[in-house]
Structures are given as structure tokens and as C-alpha cells.
Design a protein around this nucleic acid. Sequence first.
DNA 1: GTTTCGATAGTCT
DNA 2: GACTATCGAAACA
Length: 194
Amino acid sequence: MTDSFGPVLPRGFYARPTTVVARELLGKILVHGAVAGRIVETEAYLDRDEQGRIDLAAHSAAGITSRTRVIFGPPGHAYVYLAYGIHECLNIVAEQDGLPGCVLIRALEPVAGLELMRARRPSAKNDGELANGPGKLTRAMGITRRDYGADVTSGELTVRDAAAFASEMVLETARIGITKCVDWQLRYLLQETL
DNA sequence: GTTTCGATAGTCT
DNA sequence: GACTATCGAAACA
């Protein structure tokens, strides 16, 4: 990859526990073609928690289907699904091949290709609203179900390493928009320290 | 400013 | 046949 966005994260980055991958994806740069954004919010969707309880909020809890199969496959691939019949959402598969686990990318700070993002997101009132939600960021970045299963360690859609955040801290909260396992603290966000 | 609600189609039961 | 890992417009305060 010979562009200005920095080194692509290797497969090994993703072949770790989902919670670790979710936390460490914060601050990294998601690149799709000429557009890029800094990841500032993620959620982990697990197989089981530390006490062995099944994560019933995870799509993989339904088992291997045509939709969920990529979640059980090798790490570092994109799981894109349609939410509420309208919005496409991007996840990145974690854990070793054969084990389910993925990280929902919930929000980005636009970094490059702002003009294109604005054109794709006409309802955004300012640049902060271009990608501040899982359905919004896929729209802004041009990510669709065509990217289902895409390898994010090479090609058009990649995640790049970035300098560690200095003035921000990681906040852990409950996940959004689910009805099962609502108290699990698996949402990670970057917050400015004041 | 906050709350409510409809849109809309793929997936699973 | 029911449900959904969301969004944005409209209604209200």
C-alpha cells in the first residue's frame, strides 16, 4: 500500500480477544479508497464473556448462517450487515479462525476526502455529523454489503496504524441499541481529557 | 433543547 | 410473522 495514510495493521492485530481489538482500534485510521476517518467509538460482540456466558446480543449467537459465516472465519475481514432495512453497519472480525467475535465500528472523525463525504451525507449539518454513527459512517465512507468479507489487511478497505492518543482517554460503557446483555460494558470511546 | 415515531428489508423462528 | 448492533424529521417544551 503506497499512499499517505500510514502502515496497514497486520492480520495478527485482529487475531486476539475481541475486547482487546475493540479497544485498540480506537485512534486507528479507517481508509476506503480516497476517504479516511479516525476511529473514535467501537463495540465488542463476543462469543462468551469471561464467565462463559454467551453474548446473546451478538449476531454470531444464532450460529453459522450465510450472513454470520464471516464472523467465524479468519480475523481481519469485514462483516457488513443491513440494520433496520436501511442502514449498513461495518464490523471487523477478531479472534482466531474458527472462533466468532467482531468489532462494530460506531463512529469516525473525518480525516480525508471530506468533500466526498459531504456529498454522500447531505443531511449532515456539520463535519462532525458526517460519520458519528454506525449507519452514517458507512454511508460517508461508501461502504456497502459489497464489502462483506473484504480483507482489511489489503485492498481498498484497510485500517492503518496511527500515533497513540495523547489528550484522550478510553471510556467504557454499555452497548447501544440492544435488548440482550444490556449491562455488559463493551462499548469503547475516545474522550477528550479536560 | 428533548422526545417520539415512521421508514424499510433482510434474517431468523 | 416478528424482530432489528439506526437515522432523521417532526413534534413538543
